[in-house]
């Protein structure tokens, strides 16, 4: 290494020597340098709204507001699902006659009114071949104090098998309709016949 250095041209040796000489640095230089960097503006996104949306930030809510917000969101989600569900199952055909103890009155003429008196139940729905036996598809409402639950369901003409579901899991037949034979699962169902419109 020394031999190679000695063999270099004098000018080159001078440049190398000067380059190797330590440079005296002010003790505050590093601090000044960092401060200068901090003062430089932060590069921004080309789309300001995206920068605003993606910028991490924190905020706090009181527990009461958090609980209210969560409850509201769950309610909106459930309502949205129910509305979509009902729309997807809307019957298109209509009937003029229904063989059922509870004939339609104030609702549309082709709707069948299902009625059950269940004062002890906190939730009642009707399930059957018309809603895929989905206990959440056709909830019944109770507006009277005697525990009378009702719902109008548009049904297509034909024979339908159905049952009521109390509190989500207790299946009971309609006491006001003809019974179907044993369902094979330890329960009884009811039947309703919706007649085709007279031609």
């Amino acid at each position: 290494m020394t031999d190679e250095f000695d063999s270099l041209d004098a000018n080159v040796r001078w440049i190398a020597t000067e380059a190797r000489r330590p440079v005296p640095v002010d003790a505050d230089a590093r601090a000044r340098l960092l401060e200068a960097v901090r003062r430089e503006p932060v590069p921004t996104s080309a789309i300001p709204i995206m920068a605003w949306l993606t910028e991490p930030r924190g905020f706090s809510l009181p527990p009461f507001a958090t609980a209210a917000l969560a409850a509201g969101l769950v309610g909106i989600g459930v309502l949205g699902g129910l509305l979509l569900n009902r729309d997807g199952r809307r019957a298109e055909q209509s009937a003029v006659a229904v063989v059922h103890p509870q004939l339609p009155d104030s609702a549309a003429a082709h709707s069948v009114k299902f009625v059950l008196i269940a004062p002890q139940a906190s939730k009642v729905s009707v399930v059957g071949d018309f809603n895929g036996w989905d206990a959440g598809a056709t909830p019944m409402s109770s507006r009277s104090a005697d525990g009378t639950w009702t719902v109008f369901v548009p049904l297509q003409p034909g024979l339908h098998t159905y049952s009521f579901v109390l509190d989500g899991s207790h299946f009971v037949p309609d006491p006001a309709a003809p019974m179907a034979p044993d369902d094979g699962f330890g329960h009884r169902n009811s039947v309703v016949l919706v007649r085709k419109p007279a031609t």
Partner: peptide, 26 residues
């Protein structure tokens, strides 16, 4: 504003999840 954005996002998510469930069933 931030609360509104978070709420809207969660509502949209909950509704889409509900709709997805219906589609699965049907």
């Amino acid at each position: 504003i931030r609360s509104g954005i978070v709420a809207a996002t969660l509502i949209a998510g909950a509704t889409l999840l509900g709709a997805q469930d219906v589609r699965d069933r049907s």
